[in-house]
Amino acid sequence: MSTTAAAPLPPQANRQRKALVLFSGGQDSTACLAWALDRYAEVETLGFDYGQRHRIELDCRQTVRREIAAQFPAWGAKLGEDHVLDLSLLGQISDTALTSERAIELQANGLPNTFVPGRNLLFLTFAATLAYRRGASVLVGGMCETDFSGYPDCRDNTLKALQVALSLGLDTPMTLETPLMFITKAETWALTQRLGGPALNALIAEHTHTCYLGERGQRHDWGYGCGHCPACELRARGYQEFVAA
């Protein structure tokens, strides 16, 4: 689903466009990568190194890209360059459970202390800058306000406003696509099942990384992780609902 209020382009028009996917190496961004590869003529990927506690996700990115290209040749033909930007300054000015070794808990403002203020705003601004240079007119991100931790920069209204600001600031239309915005984690598993069948879901469970603590020692049905951080709990619950449906 696009955050834009404009009428959606016909499928044949989308297939002439180039997209840049914000790709962390996690389940949601891998779902978005498959979604984009199914729709656009060419797809590049962008990751960010911001001093995240679960930095192992950066190591998973290349494995996921290789496996997608090998197992889905039609998508592999569309998969373009990968980029990683150093945003370590964000980690330096943040005081969160995602950028330092501390317990994950709710704060007085009701948000979990895994919230990194401004993260998605910065990510999408840098992504739009790169997309402009690379000739891409679509940004794809895994932001969601259905099954999520309450982060304000994951909400649809935030991204609608940012899409307008980026398009005005670059003086060129920049579409922000958020295919997971209004679906649950169970529906995300169903989406990837529709896109790539059981093989894609198996790839996601085996090779992606979503756990906030960076744990890859224990393999669950839904993938690797500590099993008790908010990201693992959301992923596990979504998988259970998906297989029970």
Rank of each mutant, 00 (worst) to 15 (best):
G26R: 08
A161G: 06
A127F: 08
L79S: 05
N120L: 14
E177L: 01
Q62V: 03
G141K: 09
G223N: 11
K78L: 03
E67Y: 05
N109I: 00
C211N: 08
E215F: 15
F148Y: 09
C144D: 00
A13W: 10
L130N: 13
T172C: 12
G118C: 03
Q240N: 07
L203I: 12
V43W: 09
I93L: 06
L176K: 00
H209N: 14
L90D: 10
C60R: 04
G47T: 09
G135C: 12
T172E: 14
A41T: 07
P8R: 08
C60I: 03
W222Q: 13
P117M: 03
F148V: 07
R237A: 07
Y50T: 10
L58A: 02
R15H: 13
R219D: 12
S88R: 08
L122P: 02
N157R: 02
R17K: 05
P117W: 02
T30S: 08
D49N: 15
E215M: 15
A69W: 05
M181Y: 05
L124R: 11
Q163D: 10
G26D: 09
R134V: 07
G76E: 11
L46P: 04
T63E: 00
L89W: 01
R155T: 05
S167T: 07
D28R: 03
A74T: 01
E67V: 01
D153T: 07
M181Q: 04
G91A: 10
G142L: 02
Q16I: 09
R61W: 03
N14V: 04
V21L: 10
A131I: 00
Q107C: 09
N120W: 13
V64Q: 06
S2I: 10
L203M: 12
F123Y: 07
K18E: 03
T125N: 11
L89F: 01
S24A: 09
P10K: 01
C60E: 06
L121D: 15
N14F: 04
T129Y: 11
T114R: 15
